[in-house]
Design a binder for these strands. Structure first.
Length: 911
RNA sequence: GCGGGCGUGUUGAAAUUGGUAGACAAGCAAGACUUAGGAUCUUGUGCCUAGCGCGUGUGGGUUCGAGCCCCACCGCCCGCACCA
């Protein structure tokens, strides 16, 4: 019997819980460090070994920072509202709260086994009324504020009302405003509120019976559930995220995030500089001003037609009577398509002529106005000027409908494809002729501005976030309809609790499930029936951890000023354009209203890679119950069958376990090679259906949590995706046993000596200290594990049993393998947790020998500064350099292994 | 198409950031102990025509010196994608 991880881990997990070891309080005398994991959605499947990867890294970092003297806030909670629990409720009638509670209990149990140093007293759950009170509270604040473009920040809506009362606006006078009815005033203010109700094109998912945000839809399919999505105009609650586009973009600059993630956000925000240009348009005798947006004002002379989005409100106005039938047929056809079909048919050109014409403001030429789905209603003004010669989409359209193509750049060939590059000399372009494209763009904008037919304009791709979901399991809106006027509940009424309902399905007439709630009213007025989306509860949860039990505010001023924002945030890259944008927006809003002290929520962000599954296969000979080993399978006609990876070890099948696995295989026969059944393998997504899910509990049972933690780190760089492969886990486990043996004799009796450490032993220790320090701070957790293995190997080779070495060593190991460290720490005579130890100080003198520094000249040309041990004479060094200049020289004797000679640079001595 | 990143043994990967390439593990091979081993402990393990030879996707460049820097090409991964 030696290292008994089962006993040790249980013992210390209980001890930590009983002693509240990881609970933290604000402590102004110590620097703070806020280390956060993206909290999980507690799904029914529980955790697999991929989930804890980021949690382990953040836990190591937290424990390390604690040893370094930081006051570390390291909390965990659950993003507990969401679709799966509700879908399950619809199928089974079980209340989502019940399912959620059960799943959370399971998650907690699994996390506890891994030995995380979370402060569980700060746990939050987004579905808890005491928590969602503050989600609703924030919504009311957004409802009561507007975004002032002049100051670039959120301001109370009352200020806007005052302004309207005194000055009116561009659309109405003060007198008119004051004469408006309550309803009219409410409708106008809706155009300004940060949280507002408005009609917009939404992603409607009929299967889920709800609308979805852009980031909840991928390739025309809902991310949750994978159901088709279609475009629909609907009245929905929205958040005016687009108002913050510029600040969200600028804010990225100072963040310590990966370049790729910042770039993803930049793309999502999609800033483009251009101009809005007004075209006179004619439909029979009617004349209008139609504004379009373009980034290529320089191509104005090449406009040969214009295009409207099918959803554009201009369509009805510009359809001439004789074209009406055809246009309506086209609109109906477009409407019928799902988003997915629209994407799939991307290259197929469709469109219809409206019957109206636009007048090119620089040439006076009449150009036809078309309607086509390749123009998007939600971007710019939903209308474009088409320049087929220099835009490939316009080009395809022109070719398809035989519209003219006018090239504007000298020497470009547009017979086969458009010339999209912003490069070359302008021609056929009046006053722009002779300019380069780069000169022509600003020149054209200046021209249209001076003629009053357009203006410089910056456009963003970022849309407002659709905030309503026609579902049950989410936060109810703190909104009621007073005579049809959307009104916020008084804050004193919060939380507005989710009511009990008889069935979780939408009603027969298509209303959200909340329509089934009895008495869903406030003071006799109806309450809003939709609920908030998943990202509502996750947008500001990090504030709640700072002050989780505060009943009078989201977070107290004092707690917020101490913890400020997240120093390290670890989570998956899949949240790049969802959660991470919404959180930043939400945070900036709270900052604007003076509620929180930092503009950005997450200072440093690390994306852990995904752990994929490594599937195993067996090969069944067709029409038999005989299975043939991998190497021999080509001799037979076989079917490949996924086999549970938990009954396979190093690709060798446990044939007995296989017979027991499924009744079908009870009488299975095997054709072995060398007495073993070898399985095939492949890397696939970790999922139940592939039988490749590895449960962390199993690893904890077989090897212990410390092995799991170290092995997950050892697997490779944190950010990288990699398959879970149990090969190699034995190596890590062996390391922990060796570590244990360092402190124990043959009979497993604890033993250390008090003797003075040798220089060689100190050297091993201090090299490790330096490595652990620089690697953890550089998020290179895998190399630290290797360094520990080397140190332990070297120390056991030296039979080192000195407390002076072994005590700091166990502190170094403790962030990675906290249970074994805690056990040994207590054997070393400590009564306190190793988490309260101090990180040992790195002393460089142990790695570099005593040395002197002096300059050396060679050939009168190169000058070097040489740092050498006293044991080598200057003559010896110079001779060595002369013998073999400009290269690596090995010197005998001493502890010096080479002298590196670099012109003008300090010479490096490697020991 | 646009943007970001990567390419090193049989495998996961290291490389003090321009200085002995392949650390540390895994696998494989040989040996020891053993009734047995998915246990433990040694030892070996980039390649070859075995030279003091060749090797970090390919070709070139800078340098005394390149896995690392520069140019071109090839291949892979991720994100965005009718955004005018």
């Amino acid at each position: 019997m030696d290292y008994n991880f089962t006993e040790i881990e249980k013992k210390w997990q209980t001890w930590w819980a009983e002693n509240h070891t990881f609970e933290v309080k604000e402590d102004p005398s110590r620097p703070k460090c806020f280390v956060l994991d993206m909290f999980p959605y507690p799904s029914g499947a529980g955790l697999h070994v991929g989930h804890p990867l980021g949690y382990i890294a953040s836990d190591i970092y937290s424990r390390y920072k604690r040893l370094k003297g930081f006051n570390v806030l390291h909390p965990m909670g659950y993003d507990a509202f969401g679709l799966p629990a509700e879908q399950y409720a619809i199928q089974t009638g079980k209340h989502p709260a019940e399912t959620t509670d059960r799943n959370i209990a399971r998650y907690r149990e699994q996390m506890d086994r891994i030995g995380f140093s979370y402060d569980w007293s700060r746990e939050v759950r987004t579905c808890d009324p005491a928590y969602y009170k503050w989600t609703q509270w924030a919504f009311i604040q957004m409802f009561n504020h507007w975004f002032n473009p002049e100051t670039g920040k959120a301001e109370p809506i009352s200020g806007l009302v005052e302004k309207f009362e005194k000055e009116g606006s561009a659309d109405f006078t003060a007198a008119q405003w004051n004469a408006f009815s309550e309803k009219e005033k409410s409708d106008i203010l809706m155009n300004w509120r940060i949280a507002y109700l408005g009609k917009t094109a939404v992603n409607w998912c009929p299967k889920l019976g709800t609308v979805l945000a852009n980031d909840e839809v991928k390739d025309g399919i809902s991310v949750r559930g994978g159901f088709p999505v279609e475009q629909k105009m609907m009245q929905q609650w929205q958040l005016r995220v687009s108002a913050y586009a510029e600040r969200l973009l600028e804010g990225l600059e100072d963040l310590d995030w990966t370049e790729s993630l910042k770039e993803m956000q930049r793309n999502w925000i999609g800033k483009s500089q251009g101009a809005e240009i007004v075209f006179n348009v004619v439909n029979g005798n009617d004349r209008y001003d139609l504004t379009i947006f373009t980034t290529r004002a320089d191509t104005l002379f090449g406009v040969t037609f214009m295009v409207l989005a099918p959803e554009s409100e201009w369509v009805s106005r510009l359809t001439s009577p004789d074209r009406k039938e055809e246009v309506e047929a086209y609109l109906a056809a477009v409407k019928k398509k799902t988003e997915r079909e629209r994407i799939a048919q991307t290259r197929k050109v469709t469109g219809v002529f409206s019957g109206s014409y636009g007048i090119n403001p620089v040439t006076g030429q009449k150009v036809p106005i078309w309607i086509s789905e390749y123009v998007l209603a939600g971007y710019g003004t939903g209308a474009i000027m088409a320049v087929p010669a220099h835009d490939s989409r316009d080009y395809n359209f022109a070719k398809n409908f035989s519209l003219p193509i006018v090239p504007l750049i000298e020497g470009c060939d547009v017979s086969e494809e458009s010339f999209d590059a912003k490069d070359g000399i302008m021609c056929n372009s009046g006053f722009l002729n002779g300019l380069t494209v780069k000169q022509a763009i600003p020149a054209a904008i200046e021209y249209v501005e001076s003629k009053g037919i357009g203006r410089r304009k910056v456009n963003y791709r970022l849309r407002d976030a659709i905030f309503s979901r026609q579902r049950y399991w989410g936060e109810p809106f703190p909104i009621y309809y007073r005579d049809g006027i959307p009104t916020a509940l008084p804050e004193s009424e919060l939380p507005l609790r989710l009511p009990e309902i008889s069935s979780f399905k939408p009603t027969e007439d298509g209303e959200p499930p909340l329509a089934r709630a009895k008495d869903w009213t406030y003071q006799g007025y109806p309450l809003e029936k939709s609920t908030m989306p998943g990202f509502a509860g996750s947008s500001a949860y990090y504030f709640r951890y700072m002050d989780p039990h505060n009943d009078s505010g989201l977070v107290s001023r004092q707690a917020n000023e101490y913890w400020r924002n997240v120093d390290l945030y670890i989570g998956g890259t899949e949240h790049a354009t969802g959660h991470l944008i919404y959180s930043r927006f939400w945070n900036k809003f709270l900052y604007d209203i003076g509620y929180v002290c930092e503009q950005e929520p997450f200072r440093k962000l690390v994306n852990q890679g995904m752990i994929q599954g490594r599937s195993n296969f067996v090969y069944r000979i067709k029409n038999s119950n005989t299975f043939v080993s991998l190497g021999l399978k080509d001799n037979y006609d076989t079917t490949e069958i996924h086999v549970d990876v938990n009954i396979v070890h190093n690709d060798r099948l446990d044939t007995e376990a296989f017979r027991k696995w499924m009744p079908d295989f009870a009488s299975a026969e095997f054709i072995l090679e060398d007495g073993e059944y070898i399985c095939g393998n492949a890397v696939e997504k970790m999922s139940k259906s592939m039988f490749n899910v590895v449960n962390p509990d199993n690893i904890c049972n077989d090897y212990g949590a410390d092995t799991l933690r170290m092995y997950e780190m050892f697997l490779g760089p944190l950010e990288q995706s990699k398959p879970w492969d149990t090969k190699g886990i034995d190596g890590v486990h062996r390391f922990l046993r060796k570590l244990w043996k360092l402190y124990h004799d043959e009979g497993n009796v604890f033993r250390v000596s008090e003797g003075k450490a040798e220089a060689s032993e100190l050297k091993i220790l201090h090299r490790l200290i330096g490595k652990v320090q620089s690697d953890i701070e550089g998020f290179s957790f895998n190399t630290t594990v290797s360094a520990m293995m080397i140190a332990v190997n070297e120390l056991s080779a030296l039979n080192c049993d000195k407390r002076e070495i072994l005590e700091p060593l166990i502190v170094l190991v403790s962030p990675y393998a906290p249970h074994i460290a805690e056990e040994i720490w207590s054997l070393l005579g400590h009564t306190d947790s190793v988490s309260f130890a101090t990180f040992p100080e790195y002393v460089e003198a142990y790695t570099v020998e005593d040395s002197v520094t002096y300059p050396v000249q060679f050939n009168g040309k190169m000058r070097f500064t040489v740092s050498l041990p006293k044991s080598l004479s200057r003559e010896e060094v110079e001779q060595a350099i002369k013998d073999e200049p400009n290269t690596v020289k090995y010197l005998q004797g001493a502890s010096i292994r080479k002298v590196i000679v670099v012109p003008g640079k300090i010479i490096n001595i490697v020991c």
